[in-house]
Nucleic acid binder design. Structure first.
Length: 740
DNA sequence: TGTAGTATCTTTTTT
DNA sequence: AGATACTACA
């Protein structure tokens, strides 16, 4: 193969290699061996990956031997589409491209028996997992503290991502809390297995375990995936890393692409060391740096760079661009979140009226999903089309989850979660008590609830009425499963089944607007299933359920029409827009700070997130913050984000709005946030040396106690718990606090 | 068992 | 403020 490659290296007439810069081309041509591509924002990362895959196919690598792992299904789909423009579309279809989770789920489905699952295993989402943990927690009397099911789930998830089994986790746990979590983890894991179910993390861990325990199976997949390419490598976690190592250890043809400056999933177990240590793992690896940015203006790029410089740990690289200088980044101060939304929408309108941009060119990024509401309201008032990417997804709605639970039960009747969810939805007279008896019986015998229904006459303490209902339910389910197995008219069977479930007539009887919305959603779902089954041959309900359980919010929405896009900064990764608004730039919100853990690492991750946000923009960036924001129903005085100070002022145009609502335009101030003048009518706090625990007096709120202090100088703020109104976040600069 | 009324908590970010 | 979880009652 070496001979072929050296021949082709000199052959620059290959159309796949045209339109690539030198570094990009080198990265594409480095076909064999481990390759690390350090690709800055907007440097053509996707382009290199797609061209590399196309090139591999072009030089005769069978497409089915190529594995491309991405972060979202959407990214995989985009990649496939682009490849199909470069090579035979039929060939591009045979590539294995998808997320870690979806590809591994596919593998596990084939090999499930080896690790003690059957191939119809259910995939539990986060909600399911948390519900299970809640139920387990009921058996532990010590659930009164701050240790919520969500927290425990998170701890377990992190453990799994580090490939710690419950036993290993127990061994490494030093605190009493960890030991308790270890017990719960064990119980949780046993429960999942009993249900023939895996959570998201299991898809990764079980793949690792499968390959570790069965060398011959690993060997099979090593032979299948002789060329492996990984996108967003900086966001892989330890299990993912380990499986990549397993798969690539034979042929060693692995190309990873990433940018350490865009690593934003540390909280979910992503380990930035994976990219930093790639060279250690593969000493013979080749490294390519893509440093030319094709996306943004010079101004945007420099501004982003000036911020990310505040992070200590970084791979050395400097991005540059031949693009125009572009306009300054504009910063707006707003009175509160309503005004922030109005101002953003007003600006959007004038941008579009100006004729240079359309609504579809514009995106609004926020730190938390909850912030979308005000912007939605403001946009709706102005009749501007918009789409919220993410948020409460269709598949998370109650009625949709109910229908899906009914369907999951057909595929895997041992899926307790599904059964518990719908056994009394619509109400059948199976209440808590009856269910508890069932669950007890099942638990004692280590069988599923559905199996318990088969022995229903043996279960004591059940009411006759309940027994009748449960028998009917079981028979009905079995009948439907039989019908489904006939493999004809699957879609009809499903429709009939859901109709018989009584869900539809329940909502019809309720008859409120809300109920009709829900009916509409059920209808949409059933139509979607029908489409899926008729569109794809040889697929069944199982395939549909697997597909949607791994679908992400970003994947569902077709981001192409003339709508303003609203999304979290996390969802924004990998996308680009001509105009970007980043809103809510306030201390505590962005960077988001929670009371206890605000390590330096956390702040650096927030800063990378800000960097990701800015670098999504092609032409123009707007940044906004509010002075007052409602949090948990009451007012909180906000401090401008420290990130605003970190951006080099050369690149900023700051609009400061005074209390009298006259707008002052300030061009390139020495320090944009040194503007105390607006607030001079307020007395400065006299004694600035507040300490945690100090008792203070506020003119409106009265007596309170200082619970938390942060920031300094003009940005100093305190969290004070007042006797009258509870906790308030105050800027010391404005709040007239007196120590008492 | 189901429901109405009350208490409590929420705001990260996602496969 | 709004959703969800829990409690007391029919």
């Amino acid at each position: 193969m070496n001979k072929i490659i050296s021949e082709i290296e000199t052959n620059e007439t290959n159309p796949i290699l045209r339109n690539l810069n030198i570094e990009q081309r080198k990265a594409v041509l480095a076909v064999e061996g481990p390759v690390l591509i350090v690709a800055g924002a907007g440097s053509g990362k996707t382009r290199v990956l797609t061209h590399k895959i196309a090139y591999l196919i072009d030089i005769g690598i069978p497409p089915q031997n190529i594995l491309a792992l991405t972060f979202t299904n959407k990214a995989a789909q985009v990649m496939r589409e682009r490849i199909s423009l470069l090579v035979n579309p039929e060939a591009s279809k045979r590539i294995w491209a998808g997320t870690f989770h979806s590809i591994f789920a596919k593998i596990l489905r084939f090999e499930a028996n080896a690790i003690g699952y059957s191939s119809n295993f259910s995939i539990y989402d986060t909600d399911d997992s948390v519900n299970i943990i809640k139920r387990i927690l009921e058996g532990y009397s010590i659930s009164n503290n701050r240790l919520t099911a969500e927290t425990i789930h998170h701890i377990i998830s992190l453990a799994k991502n580090k490939v710690l089994s419950p036993e290993e986790f127990a061994r490494t746990s030093s605190t009493p809390i960890d030991r308790q979590v270890a017990d719960i983890y064990k119980e949780y894991q046993d429960y999942l297995h009993q249900n023939n179910a895996m959570d998201f993390d299991d898809l990764l861990v079980n793949t690792y375990e499968l390959f570790r325990s069965y060398p011959e199976i690993l060997h099979k997949y090593q032979e299948r995936f002789t060329f492996i390419l990984v996108d967003e490598y900086q966001d892989t976690n330890k299990v993912q890393y380990l499986v990549l190592k397993q798969l690539s250890s034979k042929y060693r043809n692995i190309t990873v692409v990433g940018d350490d400056a865009q690593s934003i999933y540390r909280w979910r177990g992503a380990d930035i060391r994976n990219i930093l240590d790639f060279q250690k793992d593969f000493p013979d690896s080749k490294i390519f740096r893509l440093e030319q940015n094709y996306r943004s203006t010079k101004c945007i790029l420099s501004a982003a760079d000036s911020v990310i410089k505040f992070n200590k740990k970084q791979i050395e690289k400097k991005l540059w661009t031949e693009n125009e200088d572009g306009e300054l980044i504009e910063v707006f101060q707003c009175e509160n979140e309503k005004e922030e939304a109005n101002l953003v929408v007003k600006t959007i309108k004038s941008l579009v009226d100006g004729g240079k941009f359309s609504f579809g060119d514009i995106a609004i990024f926020y730190r938390t999903n909850a912030q979308s509401l005000e912007f939605e309201n403001a946009l709706r008032r102005e009749n501007i089309n918009y789409v919220v990417v993410g948020g409460l997804s269709f598949y998370k709605r109650k009625e949709v989850k109910d229908v899906l639970a009914y369907l999951k039960l057909l595929v895997n009747p041992n899926d307790n979660e599904a059964l518990i969810r719908i056994i009394n939805e619509p109400p059948r007279g199976i209440g808590k008590i009856t269910l508890a008896h069932l669950m007890n019986y099942a638990k004692e015998r280590k069988i599923s609830i559905f199996e318990a229904l088969g022995n229903i006459d043996e279960i004591s303490n059940l009411q006759n009425r309940a027994i009748g209902v449960l028998k009917d339910f079981r028979n009905w389910l079995l009948r439907t499963v039989d019908k489904l197995n006939e493999k004809v008219g699957i879609a009809d069977t499903i429709y009939q089944y859901i109709k018989e479930s009584g869900l539809i007539s329940m909502y019809e009887e309720i008859g409120t607007d809300d109920a009709y919305d829900r009916l509409e959603n059920i209808n949409t779902l059933l139509t979607d299933i029908y489409d899926f089954l008729t569109r794809n041959e040889n697929t069944d309900l199982y395939d549909y359920l697997q597909q949607i359980s791994l679908i992400s919010d970003i994947d569902e929405k077709n981001i192409a029409t003339e709508q303003v896009k609203l999304m979290t900064l996390h969802s924004a990764k990998g996308l680009e827009f001509p105009v970007v608004f980043i809103v809510g730039l306030e201390q505590g919100l962005f960077p988001l700070i929670r009371y206890k853990s605000k390590s330096n690492e956390d702040e650096e991750e927030e800063r990378r997130l800000f960097y990701v946000g800015i670098t999504r923009a092609m032409k123009k960036v707007y940044l906004t913050y509010a002075l007052v924001r409602h949090r948990f129903g009451d007012e909180s005085y906000q401090v401008p984000s420290k990130f605003l100070q970190e951006i080099d002022n050369k690149y900023l145009l700051v609009h400061t709005e005074s209390r009298r609502k006259t707008i002052t335009f300030v061009d390139r101030p020495k320090n944009a946030f040194d503007y105390k003048d607006d607030f001079n009518d307020f007395d400065q706090t006299e004694d600035n040396t507040l300490k945690i625990g100090d008792k203070v007096l506020h003119p409106f709120f009265g007596i309170g106690r200082v619970e938390h202090l942060e920031g300094s100088g003009n940005f100093a703020q305190a969290l004070v718990n007042f006797d009258s109104v509870g906790r308030k976040r105050l800027m010391l600069q404005y709040a007239k606090l007196k120590k008492v």
